[in-house]
């Protein structure tokens, strides 16, 4: 399998969040990828999409699928993460009230993404955050 594509993620568009993860889940299901891998991919992409929605000014999600893995890159335009170590701690969250009423802001997202991924790389400045993850199919 070879596939690549890009989703635009709007800031605070809470009702449409989840588009990238559900589309990619359907693609991997059709391609016959195992359920346990699909679950990890779904968790990682969903949490990352939500982070771009609730914490950033907006961004994109680009995916690259080949026979052995999926790589997904999330890029947003800021305001960035001040302290990545702290952001990765379970329970740390700066989510606003609107996000919290939607069920977000548990502070578990980045940890969930890291645990679900085989490779996890995050860089951030005030100009934006880039999250680059890979999950292997075998």
């Amino acid at each position: 399998m070879q596939a690549t594509g890009k989703f635009v993620i709007e800031s605070m568009d809470l009702d449409n969040a989840g588009n990238a993860s559900s589309t990619i889940k359907k693609m991997l299901t059709e391609a016959g990828v195992s359920k346990s891998i699909i679950k990890r991919v779904s968790i990682a992409i969903y949490e990352a999409e939500i982070n771009v929605v609730i914490h950033s000014y907006g961004g994109t999600c680009t995916y690259y699928i080949d026979d052995e893995k999926i790589r997904v890159v999330f890029e947003d335009t800021g305001p960035g993460i001040e302290d990545i170590e702290q952001a990765l701690e379970p329970g740390f969250s700066t989510a606003n009230n609107q996000a919290i009423t939607y069920g977000f802001g548990a502070g578990m997202g980045l940890m969930n993404i890291k645990n679900a991924s085989d490779e996890f790389d995050i860089t951030s400045s005030h100009l934006g955050t880039t999250l680059d993850i890979k999950i292997y199919f075998n």
């Binding site: 809470l14 009702d15 989840g18 889940k25 779904s42 069920g103």
Partner: peptide, 15 residues
């Protein structure tokens, strides 16, 4: 008791 489109999205992702 969490009722919004994301509840459906999560159920869908997790089967």
């Amino acid at each position: 008791i969490m009722s919004n489109m994301n509840t459906i999205a999560v159920a869908c992702l997790l089967d």
